[in-house]
Computed example of a mutant assay.
Amino acid sequence: MSDDVRDSLIPYDEIVQDALRAVVGRVLSQIVGYDSLPGEHHFYITFKTQAVGVDIPAHLIAKFPDEMTIVLQNRFWDLKVEQDHFSVGLSFNQTPSILTIPYASITAFVDPSVDFGLQFQVSDDDDTQPEPHDEADNDRPEVISEDGSNVVTVDFGKKR
């Protein structure tokens, strides 16, 4: 069978990624109204700072020109969950900020308290590698479990 027959006209990879990103929105909607997470839960959310629709303070974009990880655990406020994005108040160096993050910009969502994680591919039109950057106070080491327990990695490579 030729490769042409195997090429799908249905964008399965995009459909699956969108569905899994909806999981992030659904999880966040469970904690709307809270200012800290119940029990030992805490979320690491990594996103592309330059993605369309991301709205964060300029000083954070300057410090994290490509990717940033935020932590939702004990001190956040005004969490609003919408169909295609969420916004949340966080403090950086004791400066309160509101961040708006589209689900399409998220590259990872992890709750290490229950060994759960999702990883996503964000399409880069130019196929360049992320720029190196200093770690933020809320950056985390890679938490994705080696044994793969409760971790879903979505990695649809480009056909060459």
Rank of each mutant, 00 (worst) to 15 (best):
L20W: 03
A136K: 06
V143D: 14
A62I: 00
S97A: 07
S145T: 10
D35H: 15
V151A: 01
D126H: 01
T69I: 15
G33D: 07
V71T: 06
Q119M: 01
I45T: 12
A104S: 09
K80I: 08
L37P: 09
S123V: 11
I70N: 06
V54C: 02
F43N: 02
P132I: 06
S149L: 14
L79M: 14
R160I: 10
P38I: 09
Y34D: 13
Y12I: 15
T95F: 03
M1C: 10
V152N: 07
H42E: 03
D84S: 13
H42K: 02
P96G: 05
Q94M: 06
G148R: 09
V32R: 08
I70F: 11
D139R: 04
S149V: 15
I31A: 10
G53V: 02
D147N: 14
I61P: 00
G148C: 10
P132Y: 05
V52R: 14
M1R: 11
V52E: 15
A51T: 02
D7I: 12
P112G: 04
I31D: 08
I15P: 07
Q50K: 13
T128H: 05
N74E: 09
G39E: 07
G53N: 02
V54T: 01
H85F: 10
L60T: 09
Y44E: 11
D155C: 07
E67G: 01
L28A: 09
P112Q: 05
P112D: 09
D13E: 13
P65I: 12
F76N: 14
Q119R: 06
D4G: 05
Q119E: 02
Q83W: 04
D139C: 04
L79C: 14
F47V: 03
G157C: 15
N150K: 07
S91E: 05
I31G: 04
R6G: 05
L60N: 08
L72Y: 02
L60S: 08
E67K: 02
R140H: 12
I45W: 10
I61H: 03
G25W: 07
D78F: 13
D84L: 10
T100H: 01
P130D: 13
E82Q: 12
T153H: 03
M1E: 13
E142F: 13
G25I: 06
D127V: 01
K80S: 11
P102F: 07
F120E: 12
L99Q: 08
E82C: 07
G157K: 15
Y103C: 01
V52N: 13
I31H: 13
E40G: 13
R6I: 07
N150G: 10
G117Y: 04
S113P: 05
D134I: 02
P57W: 14
F109D: 00
D125K: 06
D66E: 06
